[in-house]
Amino acid sequence: MKIDVSKRKEGALLTVSGRLDAMTSMDFNQACENLLDEGCENIVVDLGALDYISSAGLRSLLVAGKRISADGGNLLLSRLTGMAREVFDISGFSSVFSVYDTVEAAFETLG
């Protein structure tokens, strides 16, 4: 898994590519924790290049989402495709999170 971080005035963009699984989900949570510790309130996650997600990956998103919403911020997901979309639909996570077709659409709601 690879995570790229960029910051905008509305919040941070985390671009996740590769596999979000039992081996890598800790790294995702650490990246979110770092952003929150830096005072970032909102995080948009770009999942367009995510090849694979397991329940450990879902769990890491849930942990991040709970923490961010408890702090009054938003965790928004974008560009969910293929296998990740199927896992989200089966697990009910499509309705747990706000999922947007594009990164820009997610940021617009934060504007």
């Binding site: 450990a56 849930l62 942990v63 709970k66 919403s69």
Partner: peptide
């Protein structure tokens, strides 16, 4: 329970379901 919202959703329990 797949219908709970983010605050009530349990962490874990999804693996076997998947």
């Amino acid at each position: 329970d797949l219908t709970l919202d983010i605050q009530d959703r349990q962490i874990g329990g999804l693996g076997i379901y998947l």
